[in-house]
């Protein structure tokens, strides 16, 4: 499932970053978003806000399409 299709409040594990755009992959990695990491979707509007550990990141829908999730390991 894509991050852009799940409901706010969902906790899941990142399965893949599905883009060939290296710049975006690098940014996501720098924000701590990479396969195997657990994230929580806080809200989808006005922007996507997710929680990774104790930090937060925000991005637009386009980037949310790139982030694939699987049910969380927790």
């Amino acid at each position: 499932m894509m991050l852009s299709t799940v409901k706010p409040g969902t906790i899941a594990t990142v399965a893949a970053l599905a883009t060939n755009n290296d710049a975006i992959v690098k940014k996501l990695l720098a924000m701590g978003i990479y396969p195997g990491v657990e994230i929580e979707l806080e809200r989808r509007f006005p922007s996507y806000v997710i929680k990774i550990g104790r930090s937060r990141a925000a991005f637009d829908q386009q980037i949310a399409h790139y982030i694939y999730l699987r049910p969380c390991d927790c």
Partner: peptide, 11 residues
């Protein structure tokens, strides 16, 4: 290319 948006949100 259209701009992408991503930003870290500090406490």
């Amino acid at each position: 290319q259209k701009a992408d948006f991503f930003i870290e949100v500090p406490p």
